[in-house]
Amino acid sequence: MNLTISGHHLEVTPAIREYVQNKLERIKRHFDHVIDISVILSVDNLSEKEKRQKAEINLRLSGKTVYVESLSQDLYASIDMLIDKLDRQVMKYKTRIQDHSRQALKHLSGVESATA
Rank of each mutant, 00 (worst) to 15 (best):
H30G: 05
L105G: 03
D84A: 06
N22H: 10
T115V: 14
H33G: 11
T4M: 02
E69S: 14
A114T: 00
G110M: 07
K51L: 15
Q53E: 10
K94P: 00
H33A: 13
V12D: 04
I83H: 01
A55T: 13
E112S: 13
Q73C: 04
R96N: 15
K23M: 03
E25W: 01
K92N: 03
P14Y: 10
M91E: 04
K23V: 05
D32P: 05
M91K: 15
K92E: 05
L10K: 08
I35Y: 07
R102N: 11
L41D: 04
S113Q: 13
Q98P: 02
L82T: 07
Y67Q: 14
S47R: 10
K23Q: 12
S113H: 10
E56H: 09
E48Q: 13
M1Y: 05
K23S: 09
R29N: 14
S42W: 13
K64C: 11
E56D: 13
A104S: 14
S78F: 02
H9L: 10
R52E: 12
I40M: 10
R17I: 01
T65K: 10
L108W: 06
A104R: 14
V43G: 01
M1G: 15
K94N: 05
V68F: 03
H8T: 13
L3C: 01
G7W: 10
L71S: 07
R88F: 04
D32K: 15
D32Y: 08
T65Y: 12
N22S: 03
H30T: 09
H9C: 03
H107Q: 12
L10T: 04
G110S: 08
A114K: 11
I27V: 15
Q53F: 14
S101R: 14
T4D: 04
D99F: 13
S38T: 12
P14I: 06
V12W: 07
Y76H: 06
Q98T: 06
E56V: 05
Y93P: 00
L108Y: 09
L46N: 15
E18Q: 13
K94Y: 02
L82V: 04
V43Y: 02
S47V: 08
A55W: 10
M81P: 00
E56M: 09
V90D: 03
R96A: 13
N22M: 01
D74L: 01
D80L: 04
H9A: 15
D87Y: 07
M81H: 04
I79Y: 00
Y19K: 10
K51T: 12
L105V: 08
G63H: 07
P14D: 10
Q53L: 04
R96Y: 08
Y76C: 01
V20N: 04
S62G: 07
T13V: 00
S109M: 04
Q21F: 02
I16P: 01
Q21H: 11
S101A: 08
A114N: 02
